[in-house]
């Protein structure tokens, strides 16, 4: 263990010039379509609901209000669907080294999670119905802390399988209860 670091000492030259880089690997590019479709379903439902109201309900008194709301919905949906998946694709990244697992996720809010392989407890991959359509998979790496599961979403299914294999081999080799 390092001995007491002077918290207010002028940071030494090495520490000053370093930053945490992005993880090396992008997720599958099919994830863009997956995220688009997944978000699109929600927007479609919302839009359809409004169209139904417009057609069947009696909206004679405030018709223009309903139309404006619908127009805004379509506009927001369009922006969201064209921006979010691509942005997300640029942010979602992962990397596995001999000692640690490192993943980045989010779009507006960016999250990075790092865990040493020696502390990993379980590794599992899962594929939802929509993800199977795009042959994508999620890999979740958990540690003994309930606060720190590392989730890598939108991986190519083959890559995910290899990743799980690799992680399982590494973690089964380590001993101790990883707390």
């Amino acid at each position: 263990m390092t001995d007491s670091l002077p918290v207010s000492a002028p940071p030494d030259g090495l520490a000053r010039g370093l930053r945490l880089r992005d993880p090396a690997n992008l997720v599958s590019s099919r994830a863009i379509s997956f995220w688009t479709v997944r978000a699109g379903i929600g927007w479609l439902a919302l839009g359809a609901l409004q169209v139904i109201i417009l057609i069947f309900a009696d909206t004679s008194s405030h018709r223009s209000v309903y139309e404006i709301v619908l127009a805004v919905t379509v506009l927001v949906a369009g922006v969201h669907l064209s921006v979010m998946p691509r942005w997300r694709y640029r942010v979602h990244r992962w990397e596995l080294t001999g000692t640690a697992c490192y993943a980045q996720s989010g779009w507006i809010t960016r999250q990075r999670r790092i865990a040493p392989l020696s502390r990993i407890q379980t590794v599992d991959s899962e594929r939802g119905p929509l993800e199977q359509l795009f042959s994508l998979a999620n890999v979740t790496v958990t540690t003994a802390s309930a606060a720190g599961p590392i989730k890598i979403r939108g991986l190519d299914a083959g890559v995910a399988d290899r990743l799980v294999d690799e992680l399982t081999t590494i973690t089964s080799a380590s001993t101790g209860d990883a707390t």
Binding site: L18, R19, L20, P23, Y102
Partner: peptide
């Protein structure tokens, strides 16, 4: 960010090193 990296490096030596690059 500098301080974050400094604290994390000092608390868990070696964990972040593979992912650090010069700013």
């Amino acid at each position: 960010p500098d301080e974050a990296i400094r604290v994390a490096r000092a608390a868990t030596p070696g964990l972040l090193e593979p992912f650090l690059v010069p700013a």
